[in-house]
């Protein structure tokens, strides 16, 4: 694995510091205008130390790629408006299957193509699909420069790669592309 560059370490340190603020409860006192200076300095030192060791696992592409208001805005829209709707539909569907007397399931593992190039985008799409009930990503594979997911699907509607991909990904892939590419 290649060594991390200085901007990569800086980007990881900023992210670590934000989580330090959240976890130590300093954000509320920072907003109120009475931050505790010792805690902030300790947070800086610790996050730079952690970033120096962990940046090479965490950042493989352009480091400050994500610190871009447009991307963060689309990510918030996705998290607040788009994903919960998909989550509700899928949750309702699986809850109905689990509670109905006949247990109407047709499980199976299908292979679906993914058109995203960015690793972060692929990871976000895979996590979104796994988080919706009814589909779990089991493995990813790269064949001839194209990426595929193996998905365990509780109601196999189609065994064709493209059709199954459309049914599972829906509009999630378009949004992942908008956020990460």
């Amino acid at each position: 694995m290649k060594k991390a560059s200085l901007p990569a370490i800086a980007a990881t340190a900023v992210l670590c510091f934000i989580f330090w603020l959240l976890l130590t409860g300093q954000l509320a006192s920072l907003i109120a205008g009475e931050p505790s200076l010792e805690v902030l300095i300790a947070g800086c030192l610790v996050s730079i130390g952690v970033a120096a060791f962990s940046a090479r696992f965490f950042i493989h592409e352009k480091p400050f790629f994500f610190f871009n208001p447009v991307r963060i805005f689309w990510l918030l829209v996705y998290c607040i408006c788009i994903f919960p709707v998909e989550l509700f539909k899928a949750n309702w569907d699986v809850a109905r299957r689990a509670l109905s007397p006949g247990l109407p399931i047709d499980p199976g593992i299908v292979k679906i193509p993914v058109d995203l190039k960015s690793q972060y985008g692929q990871a976000m799409l895979a996590d979104s699909i796994t988080l919706t009930p009814g589909t779990i990503i089991m493995n990813t594979v790269e064949e001839d420069g194209k990426n595929y997911y193996y998905v365990h699907w509780i109601n196999v509607a189609s065994e064709d790669h493209e059709e199954a991909g459309q049914a599972i990904k829906g509009r999630l892939e378009k949004w992942a592309e908008r956020i990460w590419e």
Partner: peptide, 12 residues
Amino acid sequence: FCRMQSSTNITT
């Protein structure tokens, strides 16, 4: 695997 699918209901 089907049991895991159902448990995602709880975790989401």
